[in-house]
């Protein structure tokens, strides 16, 4: 493993499999009466969140605690930034207290790359702007593998706001690295430029994208995108792209439905689908802890080739 986990882009397929395999072992710890191992005893992990996040932060915190790390979470949303402190200064101040790892969530794409260049601590990207959210893609892959026993050769349809989604970028990178056939679908206004060069099939027909899919992965539609005139209305979005039972019926009979959360029921996904038998949305959340434990454990080792 490299010093930091900045994105799936920097991982080889071997490293991805190592993380997934390690996560298999980590998951068992969560089923014990004492859900804790002493592995990261004496290691300090700082969760530095510049954006609000409940799920990801909680997941990291639980993962850290199960590995016995000393952990603290800082929500920087207001305090330092409003006082005019730069990201670099905030990070250097935390760095001065010698943490071993810093888990970073930030609204700016590339924020983790910037910190990686200035920090000795290992940086784990917990989502940077529209760039990447690598642990989400890893837990998604873990969940897919659990159900389908493989990733290679699967048809995965990713539907929603492709443009603004870091989950999309990480998942596309990971799934194509591991040999899945990835289809992406969303309104033309929300398709990033050069999407075809990511090695995916792009379709504005959600029906085409989900046809015979093994996995359907929904992306969140953010209400604030309405202001950018990307879509006329949430109601119309649901009509054209919302994941309904009829659309799911076009996928393979054993297809699974995923969503990184938080969900907008009735916007990108119908409640009957979200709560349906093919939904693995809550398993994704559960698996997130194991995958993050694996990442924390593997990154805590010595740097390779440095």
């Amino acid at each position: 493993m490299k010093k930091d986990l900045l994105g799936i882009a920097e991982l080889s397929s071997e490293e991805i499999y190592l993380i997934l395999d390690t996560a298999e072992a980590m998951r068992e710890i969560g089923q014990r009466p004492i859900k804790k191992v002493p592995t990261l005893r004496g290691k300090t992990v700082v969760n530095l969140f510049f954006e609000p996040s409940t799920r990801t932060r909680t997941s990291f915190e639980i993962a850290e605690k199960r590995l016995s790390a000393d952990t603290l979470s800082i929500a920087v949303a207001a305090s330092s930034v409003l006082k005019g402190e730069t990201l670099v200064d905030t990070a250097m101040n935390i760095e001065a207290m010698s943490p071993d790892m810093i888990v970073v969530r930030h609204a700016a794409s590339g924020a983790c790359h910037l910190l990686s260049r200035i920090c000795r601590s290992r940086i784990i990207n917990a989502g940077d702007g529209m760039h990447e959210h690598p642990t989400q893609a890893l837990l998604d892959a873990f969940t897919i593998r659990e159900h389908k026993k493989r990733i290679d050769g699967l048809k995965v349809a990713i539907v929603g706001d492709l443009l603004h989604s870091r989950v999309l970028r990480s998942n596309v990178l990971l799934l194509t690295k591991l040999g899945a056939e990835v289809w992406v679908s969303g309104p033309r206004t929300l398709v990033p430029a050069g999407m075809e060069r990511f090695g995916v099939r792009v379709s504005t027909s959600v029906e085409e994208a989900v046809a015979d899919a093994d996995v359907i992965m929904m992306l969140r539609i953010q209400q604030e995108r309405m202001q950018g005139a990307f879509i006329p209305s949430l109601r119309e979005y649901f009509t054209v792209f919302g994941m309904t039972a009829e659309r799911v019926a076009r996928a393979k009979p054993d297809a699974i439905i995923m969503h990184p959360g938080p969900m907008n029921r009735g916007v990108e996904i119908a409640s009957e689908v979200a709560d349906g038998p093919y939904s693995v949305i809550l398993e994704q959340v559960a698996n997130g802890v194991a995958v993050r434990m694996a990442v924390l454990y593997l990154l805590a080792g010595g740097p390779e080739g440095e």
Binding site: D21, E28, V37, T39
Partner: peptide, 25 residues
């Protein structure tokens, strides 16, 4: 039982990759 996560030499000399963790069953 996989004892990797309980080893007392983990992280003491952080060089090289971490030992592979296998499942405890």
């Amino acid at each position: 039982l996989d004892i990797t996560l309980y080893r007392d030499d983990l992280m003491r000399h952080a060089v090289g990759p971490q030992p592979v963790v296998r499942k405890t069953e």
